[in-house]
Design a protein around this nucleic acid. Sequence first.
DNA 1: CTGAAAGCGCTTACAG
DNA 2: CTGAAAGCGCTTACAG
Lengths: 330, 330
Amino acid sequence: MMRPRLRDVARRAGVSAGTVSNVLNRPDAVSPKFRSRVERALTELNYVRDAAAGALRSGISQLVGVAVFDITNPFFMEAASGMDQRLAREGFVMALASTHADAQQEARLLRELEAQHVRGILLTPVASDLAVVREVVTRGTRVVLYDSMTSPRGISSVAVDDVAGAELAVQHLLELGHRRIAFLNGPRSVRQARDRLAGARRAISRVESARADLIVREAQDFTATAGRAGADWLIENVDPLPTAIFCADDLIAIGAMVALRDHQIRVPERVSVIGFDDIPAARSIPLTTVRQPMAELGWLAADLLLSGRVCHEKRVPTLLVRQSTGPAPY
Amino acid sequence: MMRPRLRDVARRAGVSAGTVSNVLNRPDAVSPKFRSRVERALTELNYVRDAAAGALRSGISQLVGVAVFDITNPFFMEAASGMDQRLAREGFVMALASTHADAQQEARLLRELEAQHVRGILLTPVASDLAVVREVVTRGTRVVLYDSMTSPRGISSVAVDDVAGAELAVQHLLELGHRRIAFLNGPRSVRQARDRLAGARRAISRVESARADLIVREAQDFTATAGRAGADWLIENVDPLPTAIFCADDLIAIGAMVALRDHQIRVPERVSVIGFDDIPAARSIPLTTVRQPMAELGWLAADLLLSGRVCHEKRVPTLLVRQSTGPAPY
DNA sequence: CTGAAAGCGCTTACAG
DNA sequence: CTGAAAGCGCTTACAG
């Protein structure tokens, strides 16, 4: 009826609770005879260690906190899946939560996870000052930053170069002859949005032969709904319509394509669309995009967390040309 | 440096630790004078309750376990998002994990979450015997089943009628004149796959005027990769190709459409494709599908968990006709 | 190598 | 209404 406790196992094995605990936590310190006796009792009773008690006493739990912007964005879930793969093999349980890209909620969440004595936290940071993160780290909780370009001392991070990625995207459009390009960005409060804007601008500024324009429109968030609204806005307010739209993520791009289709504007014949991330759905659109190795980076972030190694991994994203981009129509 | 403890707050407020705890847990039992003094100390020190200690002592934590088949499937993440919305408003933290639709891993996970003294578990059950679930519930952990058609006594569940949904899908194809229909199903070990097959068969068996065929192919899992392989198999092995493909979920449908496109088979002119779930990407394809109200059901499941009410909610899914289905070509 | 004991930070009857 | 004390189930020095 009740779950067995350490003392139940101890009684059954005819040893003390301390010895059972030793078998569990430092088996080498127990004689083979006692160890096998205890192990039998453990399996016979189907013992599961009380995680709360263990966490309280030892100061550490089998929980790893993962805090991302948005759990419905495949970008983050691909990453979380990579993290989970690394974590599960050591028996850790992932506690996933969303910050909704809000600094307040991020702070609340970090404290809450710390209070659970999590083994560590994998975080997509919203705030770039990292004040709360530092606080938590100072008190002894490991944090690894996912998708963060800041490389604070003592805190590991993994990231992709967003500036380079956006540059790649816009360069691709320029090479196709586009000279009036719209950029459907995410909210500027998010670092990724700022960096991608910087990259887009840099590519534009490189154009020498002719003049190139970048029309920037900021979406409310990185969702398809926001992308749709953004494209609707372009269609209504920008005349003539740009011949290409660079979107700050694939979800925005998907939304933009829905809007274009609703207005019978053909992609890529009249307007080219390019995204960012390469979420699984991008392939089926099929959407030209800038690929980020999300699962790989997630795996790496979890690995850094477990090993305790401190380092800053940066990856350069790659361009994936599919069928949503083509030559400029004029 | 160290996080403040209850006793630090007590000292600062000039009261005992018990009184601070009372302010936190049963404020009405404390006089207004003491209460406000304690509350000030609480905020001044930025106190965060130690969750592990609280869980150990009270037997309950602020954690809610969520165990789904696959965290990269938008179907589950839309649901999780609904759960999170309900949970976050009461200050609960969601611990999301994947069972990979495997009964073993499900059992392991349930025990692990129980050991964390979670407030409850929201589970997409793999095993239909529910033995481990019952065990956990007997010991006092609340469980609400998500997407489960079994309605065990004492355990709440929310679900959509998969049989009816699949019937709806195939009926739609039949009404369009299709008589050779392929069904790209998920693994039969999963209840949803079995139910959707039953629904598809039922629709087929209703046809009176002419004969209708259902060619069933079981995919490895509910992913786009599996869907692609499934459609490739159909293209290679079934001649003539069926004029319509019903897919057990949208991911499989998306994969199938990629395969068809790679073979220059036009959708819906030569082959109609219909999915199941209505994940956000479906709209942008645009894929005809059977809609499940995932976020709503997730919210409801979390609500049942928190309220402790036991009931079984069933929803009837709805058909969403978009542009991936059309009249049979012959 | 093993056992008895202290203690992690809370919560909760209970005495005053 | 408040405080002192016991105890949740573990882990970990420490004595034997």
